[in-house]
Nucleic acid binder design. Structure first.
Lengths: 251, 251
DNA sequence: CATTTTTGTGCGATATATGAACAAATGTCA
DNA sequence: TGACATTTGTTCATATATCGCACAAAAATG
C-alpha cells in the first residue's frame, strides 16, 4: 500500500474511540491525548467530530461515548454470517447441556466472543458478544491457538502477557506449546479453573467443510457442579455433535 | 464548532464501517461507495486504512471486517458504568422471574440493548448488547419515549418508519402519543405481541436519584405462557423492586 | 495569588479529497 | 463466439483541508 492510501485522520480517530475502552466513562481532551499519544489539537478535532456525528457528547469539559458507537462494533456481528449461523446451534447445545455455551474467534492474543447462550450465571465477569479474554488460558483460546502453525502460536504467546489468573493458570510457554499439541491431537481443550476459580470449561474447534478452523465453541460449568475430569464424558459428545452440524453448514 | 474542527476523513471512515452493517459480510470498493455515497477513491482509502490497522482484511476484491471492530463498540459498554451496574440486578431479576430480562437506552428512534440476562429463548431474533429495535413498538421503547417531553417524542415518531411488525402493532402517531401518556401515568408499559407474534413484555424506567430516566428494563415472556393481562400482576412487583434498587445506586 | 495544567486558536507545512482519465475486468446481446 | 457497453480498481494533478506547533487564554490547583 502506498502512503497516500492511508487516511491518518481516520486512524487517529479510531484510536481515540478505543481510548474510552481503556479507562472509564468520561475523557477530557488532555486525558484522551495522553492515552492515545496524539497531539491535543488532533484529539480535540476527532472528539468534536464524534460529537458532531452523534457518537459522543461534550459538556464543555468531558466527552462521553453514546450508544451510537455500538453500531460500529455491531457492524461486524451483523455483517458476518458466522455468529448468525452459529447462534441457533449454540442455543440448542446450551439447552441440551443445561450449561452456558459460547462461540469465539481469535483476535491477536485474545479470544473475542461472537455469540453466547446462557443457562445460568457462573462467571464473575459478564461475557457478551465483543467481550475479550486472554487466549492462552481460555478453553476456546487453547483450541484456536492449537489450530495455528506452531511458529504463529509461539509468536502469539511471545506477545501475550502471561499472567496467572488463578493458582491453576499455566504460564510457561513450553508447557503451553505442549498443551497445544495435546489439544490438536485430541481435538478438544479442557480448562480447570485456570481463568477463574470455580469455573471449568471444554472447547472444540468449529471447522468448515475444508477443515479450516474458523471459530471455537465451548461449554462452561461450575467446578462444584461438574468436576474437570467429568467434563469430557458429559459434554464432549454434545460438542462434537454441534461441531459436526456446523461443518456441514459453514462455507 | 468551527468548520476546521471537523475531521471529514474520520467521519467518512466511520460511515464506511457502518456500511458493512447494512448489507452482509463482504463489500467491494464500488459497493461501499454506493452505500455511503462517497467517491470511490475516498472509500478505497478508508478501506485500505482499515485493513492496515487490522479492522478489515482485503483479498484484492472484497473487504471484510475483522473482530477487531468489536473493540470500537465495546468501548461504549466498557466506558459506561450503566451496563456494569445494571447487569447483576438484571441477573437477579431474570432468575426470580424465570424469564429473560433486558436493559436498554434510547438512540434516536431505536432502543439499543446494553445488557441482557436470559433464561429461555423466546424471540426469533437474537438480542445481544448492541442490538437495536424500533422504539415505538417495544416495551422499553415506550417507556423511554414516554419519559421524553411530548414534543420530542412526537419528533421521534415523525422520524420513525411506523411499520407494523404484527397485526397487533400500534402505528397511529396519535394512538402512540396517548399510549405514552398512559405509560407515564402508570409507570410501566406492556406490549402484547406488537413486535413479534407470541411475545409479550413489560418494562419500567430506570431512574437515577434525581428522577431522570437513564434507561429501561423489561421482562419478556411467551404469550402462550403468560397472558398479556397477567404480565402486570406477575412481573411488575419484581420490576419495581429492581427499579427501586437501581435508583439508589445510580449517580 | 502564584503556579501548574488544560483548553482554544492562528498559521505554515504537509497530507488528503476530488473528479477526471484510463486500463482491466466483467457483463450483455446479436 | 466476438464486439460493444458497463462496471471496477487505480492513478494523477491540484485545490483544499488537516496536522502539529507555538502561543494566549482560561481553569484548576495548592
Amino acid at each position: 500500500m502506498r502512503e497516500t492510501d492511508f487516511v491518518s485522520g481516520f486512524a487517529k480517530g479510531l484510536k481515540v474511540i478505543e481510548a474510552f475502552g481503556e479507562t472509564r466513562q468520561r475523557l477530557t481532551i488532555a486525558e484522551a491525548s495522553k492515552l492515545t499519544g496524539l497531539d491535543r489539537a488532533t484529539v480535540r478535532r476527532s472528539l468534536l467530530t464524534l460529537s458532531e456525528l452523534g457518537y459522543a457528547v461534550y459538556d464543555g469539559k468531558f466527552f462521553t461515548l453514546t450508544p451510537k458507537v455500538l453500531r460500529l462494533g455491531h457492524a461486524y456481528l451483523a455483517a458476518t454470517p458466522l455468529p448468525i449461523i452459529i447462534q441457533p446451534h449454540l442455543d440448542q447445545l446450551s439447552e441440551r447441556a443445561s450449561q452456558n455455551a459460547s462461540a469465539s474467534v481469535l483476535d491477536g492474543t485474545e479470544v473475542v466472543y461472537i455469540a453466547r447462550a446462557s443457562q445460568r450465571r457462573v462467571m464473575s465477569i459478564n461475557l457478551t458478544p465483543g467481550s475479550r479474554l486472554p487466549a492462552f488460558c481460555a478453553s476456546m483460546g487453547r483450541v484456536l491457538l492449537a489450530a495455528l502453525p506452531e511458529s504463529e502460536a509461539r509468536s502469539v504467546l511471545a506477545r501475550t502477557d502471561l499472567r496467572a489468573n488463578t493458582p491453576n493458570t499455566k504460564t510457561d510457554p513450553e508447557d503451553l506449546m505442549a498443551e497445544f499439541r495435546r489439544v490438536r491431537a485430541q481435538g478438544y481443550a479442557v480448562i480447570d479453573q485456570e481463568l477463574e476459580i470455580g469455573l471449568c470449561s471444554i472447547a472444540v474447534p468449529v471447522e468448515n467443510d475444508r477443515g479450516q478452523t474458523v471459530a471455537a465453541i465451548n461449554i462452561g460449568a461450575p467446578a462444584a457442579y461438574v468436576a474437570a475430569a467429568d467434563m469430557v464424558e458429559r459434554f464432549l459428545p454434545l460438542l462434537k455433535e454441534t461441531q459436526k452440524a456446523l461443518r456441514l453448514v459453514l462455507p
